[in-house]
Design a protein around this nucleic acid. Structure first.
Lengths: 345, 345
DNA sequence: TTGTATGCGTTATCAC
DNA sequence: GTGATAACGCATACAA
């Protein structure tokens, strides 16, 4: 519709009048859903340009049952941190625009009702849910929504749902392997907040890390990091003689604490992390890390989602995004050879 | 509309049928735009509940010319950083929901076309533009959009626009005053990226800082921080004998660098910053800082915006959100007295 | 206090 | 290849 210079709204009817064709022809020119002679196509297109016509989204949605909108459920208080969240959101938005869709924000705070609201009100054509919990009430709700819903993360009962996530298990194996040259490993892992939140990737990572350590015959201590006690916790770990640290959260504070203790990663001890590249490289000594690749996860999620919207409905399923490790300078004796492939379970 | 158990869409007509009233009555019950007898109100409400009816957003928008959507233009690559951005977005989303609106994300990358797209297509009732530039082409475009547009930041030509921002001038004065006990001040200020981006608050802050320093008879050196050279730049500044540092960006790296040089803020030198509370308190020695209060700015922006939408159209104008300083432990001899009020220009 | 009827701006089915 | 025309689901002016 847009607005004409005179302030009135421009509709496809106006375009039709100017172009000297019927309104339906205008619609078909825009959608390309039926053959149009080159002559009328030009006529219509010129009228559109001249009037700067833009179709009315509401009317279009009403008539076509398509909103061209993807709703994204955002956990603003995510333990992921703002940077990770933004990476997800940006990538999702980009992908959406590439498919001529827009993104509607829904706060995770709204819970399952939020899903019902945007789906039931026909505000969107699909939903992306971030930071899924193990026992996530939204799983059941999503099952009988009128729109396809994609979960980033794996709920315990993923049956009939579309779920995708980073391969935390493989990430854990890579990190443990990188450290475990016969030394015992201390994991500065997600703490109470993450556990209380029932984040599904925490146990996934933890179990895989423990299994990998066991398989290599080294001990693994899991220290649940508390945001406000990092300094003390790191001191304890170091005092206990640990010199192989695996950090999954609060990397900045941990590195600070290590340096406060007069130790240097890569020189006095080994430190690896699960962190974004930006976080891992933000220190004087860049940290060897497995990135959770939020952008890759988002991209794949959106590719999948648009596949679903185009009818390649595909069975509900669960997908993983591969892990890889980037060696930097925070480990004293990196294992020989190039960055290893993902180790099998 | 939602969906009935049978999978069909539920409309207000269905509700009307079940309640034994006319469709318009259903509409009026929902909107409250005309008196309804308690009896039929109950009838209708029961039918709504029973059918879990939800109005169709597209139809509603089409009929009412109201989308109940606020578009937010997000600069994903903001120098503000992810945390700041998220704070803005969250607060905007919360405010929107409180007014029964939703938030549509638009990437700043789309530029002025993005504004035209969402306004012209009737995808939203209003637009919020973040991170406005001094010479911002979106200013001119916003002037003849069919929806009210609120700028967070001040373009050079704010005429006829609604603009709001943190009071960077007052912030600068507070920070300089806090440091300027006769010592010269080094400002580790926004660097090339911010300058190239033509961010309007950079010159605002800088000019005010310089004037405040001049007024107090102290010298002020402005060092444009380059993300990858922070360490060296800080060393230079310290080598030059500076012991009063004012940081506007990259606080984490600067503090790292200072500590690497063997100095401790609050003990060996004074350090104040323009930073969010979260950033300022993330160090062993919490930093005396002026917060840009992204949440306050957002809240006020949204309050203003909804005022506009409700017809309190108000003249176009420019508004500032007051600055205040929080004293922590990074300054050796804090000025006596409580946190001072905003100094006049 | 309630019902009837029209319009919002598209899409898509018929008919030509 | 093109033009009428009937939905789409709701809001609201007009009647009663």
């Amino acid at each position: 519709m847009a607005r004409a210079a005179n302030g009135r709204t421009v509709t496809s009817k106006d375009v039709a009048r100017v172009a000297g064709v019927s309104q339906s022809t205008v619609s078909y020119v825009m959608s390309g859903k039926r053959p149009i002679s080159e002559k009328t196509r030009r006529l219509v297109q010129d009228a559109i340009d001249q009037l700067t016509y833009q179709p009315n989204a509401g009317a279009r949605a009403l008539a076509s049952q398509r909103t061209q909108v993807i709703a994204v459920v955002v956990p603003f208080d995510s333990t992921l941190g703002a940077a990770g969240l933004m990476a997800f959101i940006e990538e999702i938005t980009l992908a959406a625009r590439q498919h001529d869709h827009d993104v509607l924000l829904v706060t995770a705070e709204e819970g399952g009702d939020g899903l019902r609201r945007v789906a039931g009100g026909a505000l969107c054509d699909a939903i992306v849910v971030m930071e899924v919990r193990t026992a996530d009430p939204r799983a059941a709700i999503a099952r009988d929504l009128r729109v396809p819903t994609l979960f980033i993360g794996f709920p315990a009962d993923a049956d009939g749902l579309h779920c995708i996530d980073f391969d935390f298990e493989a990430g854990a194996r890579l990190l443990v392997t990188e450290l475990a040259a016969g030394r015992r490993v201390a994991v500065l892992g997600w703490g109470p907040e993450a556990t209380e939140r029932d984040l599904n990737y925490v146990p996934r990572f933890r179990r895989a890390a423990q299994e990998a350590a066991a398989a290599q015959g080294v001990a693994l201590d899991w220290v649940p990091v508390e945001r406000d006690r990092v300094e003390a916790q790191v001191q304890d770990v170091l005092a206990a003689g640990h010199r192989s640290l695996l950090v999954t959260t609060e990397l900045t504070r941990v590195v600070h604490a290590v340096r406060s203790a007069g130790l240097q990663p890569g020189t006095d001890l080994d430190l690896v992390a699960l962190a974004t590249d930006a976080d891992a490289t933000g220190f004087p000594v860049p940290v060897t890390a497995v990135s959770t690749h939020p952008r890759d996860v988002s991209r794949q999620a959106m590719a999948w989602l648009f596949g679903l919207l185009e009818g390649n409905s595909g069975e509900a399923q669960v997908r993983s995004v591969p892990a890889s490790i980037t060696r930097r300078r925070s480990v004293r004796d990196p294992l020989p050879g190039p960055t290893p492939p993902v180790p099998p379970a």
